[in-house]
Simulated assay, not measured.
Amino acid sequence: MAPRNKKSIKVCRNCHHVVDGESCVTCGSSNLSDDWGGYLYIVDPKNSDIAKKMNIDMPGRYALKVR
């Protein structure tokens, strides 16, 4: 599902995971940004070339670029 309102969605600056709360459930960081671009959903990280390139090992929602 694509984000409804990009401005209200926060992304972890460390792992690029889309965050629902105040900290990242993937890496535990609270270093979040609302300035990001590109949205992707990784379903099978073991067979995804993009996931390998971004060092993603868990399925989920991610941003391609985080500023």
Rank of each mutant, 00 (worst) to 15 (best):
S30N: 14
I9W: 11
L40M: 08
L64I: 13
N14Q: 09
S33E: 02
N47R: 13
R4F: 14
K52F: 01
T26F: 10
I50A: 10
G21F: 05
R4P: 07
M54S: 00
R13Q: 15
N14A: 04
P45C: 10
S8H: 13
V66W: 10
P59K: 09
R4Q: 15
K46P: 04
D49N: 15
V19T: 06
D20F: 14
I56M: 11
K10N: 04
I42N: 09
R61Y: 05
D49M: 07
D57Q: 03
K53N: 05
M1L: 05
S30R: 12
S33I: 01
E22Q: 08
L32I: 05
T26W: 09
R4I: 06
D34M: 11
P59S: 06
D57T: 06
V25G: 01
D57C: 02
R61G: 00
M58Q: 15
I50Q: 08
A51R: 00
R61I: 03
G60I: 14
S33A: 03
K65W: 03
H16T: 14
N55H: 09
Y62T: 13
R13W: 05
K46M: 11
H17S: 06
N47V: 00
P59C: 04
H17F: 11
G38F: 03
S8V: 15
K6V: 06
G28D: 02
H16R: 12
N14M: 04
K6N: 04
Y41W: 06
V43I: 09
Y62I: 13
S48I: 00
Y62R: 13
C27N: 01
G60L: 12
I9L: 12
R67Q: 11
N14T: 06
V19I: 07
R61Q: 06
S30D: 15
V43P: 00
G21K: 14
G38Y: 01
